[in-house]
């Protein structure tokens, strides 16, 4: 399955929710939509699901030699941002109902259900009403509901929200399992550490526009040759003092004698280290690459400077 989104835009009244966004997703990829609240992620997802139509631009899906101008429902598994199931029905009844609506036979649905309930440690709770489960467990049931019918494309809006770190890791495992089954996954998230582990491609958005796009390596390159130096020294020192010795550098204090220095392209690593050696007794020096979280924050800050409105 291949999904091509070409210059789609969507306005809600005077608000431009999505502005000429394009991307392409290949079969079996995990694609992440990133951005702060109001960036336009959910608007894109709703257009992909077919709840709304783009004001301009096109969505094209190729699957098994067929081409569609929308995502056909039978190919789609969806976890909405605003989600819920029937609280007074059991896990089994909820899942069976949705699976049968997707066209699965009861036998096949029960078989798939047993597999995914096992994955999420919910096998012995299948007869419990949904309202008896914790919020995290309810979310797991919703994730199962989105994939029971083995869709070609799974769209998950904020799959990690409301989950504790252990369950977030379980969802990471779940998404990897979907990929291994050949499903294409689109997800939106704020948890950069999770996305970094998972996503093949990503799209960083702000105010409806794309800021950065591509693989993690692509994004690191687009963000500029950002370099970071982690240093440790024998004596405690104030960040302000470091700032005086190294003007123009971004300095983050990790502890009283550990710091993270971010250099721009114009700043020299050797000159920085020379100055530090002159002033401090360094015990450890390590070159680092900015992670997705830092890249996200930097990109957002740069975007804010460029487009303050």
């Amino acid at each position: 399955m291949q999904l091509s989104v070409s210059t789609i835009s969507k306005d809600y009244g005077d608000i431009a929710a999505v502005r000429k966004v394009s991307f392409q997703i290949n079969s079996g990829d995990i694609f992440a939509l990133l951005g702060p609240n109001g960036a336009g992620k959910s608007s894109i997802i709703r257009m992909l699901v077919g709840m709304t139509r783009p004001d301009s631009g096109t969505i094209q899906v190729s699957h098994q030699n067929e081409v569609y101008d929308h995502v056909p429902r039978r190919l789609l598994g969806y976890l909405p941002e605003d989600r819920g199931l029937y609280p007074d029905k059991s896990i089994e009844k909820n899942l069976l109902y949705l699976a049968q609506l997707h066209g699965l036979s009861k036998q096949k649905a029960l078989q798939e259900m047993a597999h995914w309930l096992e994955v999420f440690d919910l096998s012995d709770r299948r007869d419990e009403e949904l309202k008896q489960l914790s919020k995290g467990n309810q979310q797991k049931v919703q994730l199962i509901a989105a994939v029971l019918h083995q869709p070609a494309l799974v769209i998950l809006d904020e799959p990690f929200s409301g989950l504790d770190p252990i369950n977030q890791e379980k969802v990471v495992g779940f998404l990897k399992a979907l990929k291994s089954r050949g499903m294409t996954v689109i997800l939106s998230a704020h948890q950069m550490a999770m996305v970094e582990k998972l996503a093949d491609h990503m799209l960083l958005m702000a105010r409806g526009s794309v800021i950065l796009a591509g693989t993690l390596a692509d994004i690191q390159q687009q963000a500029g040759p950002q370099r970071q130096i982690a240093i440790s020294c024998t004596d405690a020192v104030e960040v302000e003092q470091l700032q005086q010795w190294l003007p123009g550098l971004t300095i983050e204090g990790l502890s009283a004698n550990k710091f993270l220095l971010t250099l721009t392209a114009e700043q020299s690593v050797s000159a920085t280290l020379k100055r530090l050696v002159n002033e401090l007794e360094l015990t450890q020096v390590e070159m680092q690459t900015a992670d997705l979280h830092q890249l996200y924050l930097m990109a957002m800050a740069q975007h804010q400077q460029r487009d303050p409105a």
Partner: peptide
């Protein structure tokens, strides 16, 4: 109110 509608929309017309 139980937020089922959007999920159902992705399954049936």
């Amino acid at each position: 109110q139980q937020r089922v509608t959007e999920q159902l929309y992705a399954i049936v017309t």
